[in-house]
């Protein structure tokens, strides 16, 4: 059975005549231990899907189930302990006036965990930051270090699922490699399942065994990594995305017809 099961999600935002349908019949399943990708241009609704899974939007219709429990039936706090999110911009997602220790303690306090000090140390350790970062403020950290703090904050509740919303697009490529490696290590170590949103097909290809291509609130097609590598994409939009993202890497194999 799949760990995350999403079927037929519709979402409207705005009221009355200004109401817009943002998501239209989104369905996909993610197995435990898998990384599932969502790719598409901005406004296609890929981040919105994550926000629905995280419970940041609640007025969608359809069904989202994690580990057999549906969103409606689950206890809100218990849901959050299972599903955590890492946001795109580590400059915006950390409170500038809170120390790293406060940032990591907050979710533990909300969820009434004991042994906070030890858990903070452990989370920092997991993301490769030492104890010396504990009493610093976000502005004293580089972009990559901040994103590690954001990851630690997501991990501190010991979730099973991480929702990653463009986690490396605000970072330099050399730092991106470090963070993507960290995600892979953590997935093995903690048996995590990821849903990864990115506009970069190369990142999706590197991280995900399968992914959905989204356009205008709909899933255009679901592809496996093997299909992508073999150039077996059917939707014209996916092909356009593939050509725009890194055609120079694909020019070599004869399967890529031009």
């Amino acid at each position: 059975m799949s760990l995350i099961s999403i079927s037929d999600i519709d979402l409207h935002l705005g009221a009355g005549t200004r109401s817009r349908q943002i998501l239209d019949g989104i369905s996909f399943d993610v197995d435990e231990g898998q990384t599932f990708g969502l790719v598409g241009e901005s406004g296609s609704g890929k981040s919105t899907v994550l926000r629905c899974i995280a419970g940041l939007y609640r007025h969608w219709t359809g069904s989202i189930a994690v580990d057999g429990d549906t969103f409606e039936s689950a206890d809100r706090l218990a849901w959050c302990r299972k599903v955590q999110m890492v946001f795109q911009d580590p400059y915006g997602s950390l409170h500038p006036k809170h120390r790293i220790s406060d940032i990591l303690a907050e979710p533990l306090q909300i969820h009434r965990f004991g042994d906070i000090d030890r858990r903070i140390g452990e989370a920092l350790e997991q993301v490769g930051l030492g104890g010396q970062f504990r009493y610093r403020y976000p502005h004293q950290l580089s972009g990559g270090q901040r994103q590690r703090v954001a990851i630690a904050r997501a991990l501190v509740l010991r979730p099973r699922i991480l929702l990653l919303d463009e986690p490396t697009s605000a970072l330099d490529v050399s730092i991106q490699a470090e963070i993507l490696n960290l995600f892979k290590d953590l997935r093995e170590e903690l048996n995590l399942t990821y849903v990864l949103v990115s506009h970069d097909l190369a990142v999706i290809d590197h991280m995900c065994s399968a992914f959905a291509v989204m356009q205008a609130g709909k899933i255009v097609e679901v592809l496996t990594r093997d299909a992508l590598d073999a150039g077996q994409v059917s939707a014209p939009y996916t092909r356009a995305l593939l050509e725009a993202s890194g055609h120079y890497d694909l020019a070599a194999p004869p399967s890529a017809q031009s």
């Binding site: 097909l201 190369a202 290809d205 593939l242």
Partner: peptide
């Protein structure tokens, strides 16, 4: 820098880090 970029179709377990 070049080695740290993920590329489509190039399966690597880990990206090399600068």
């Amino acid at each position: 820098l070049l080695a740290s970029l993920p590329r489509i179709g190039q399966r690597r377990d880990r990206l090399s880090v600068l």
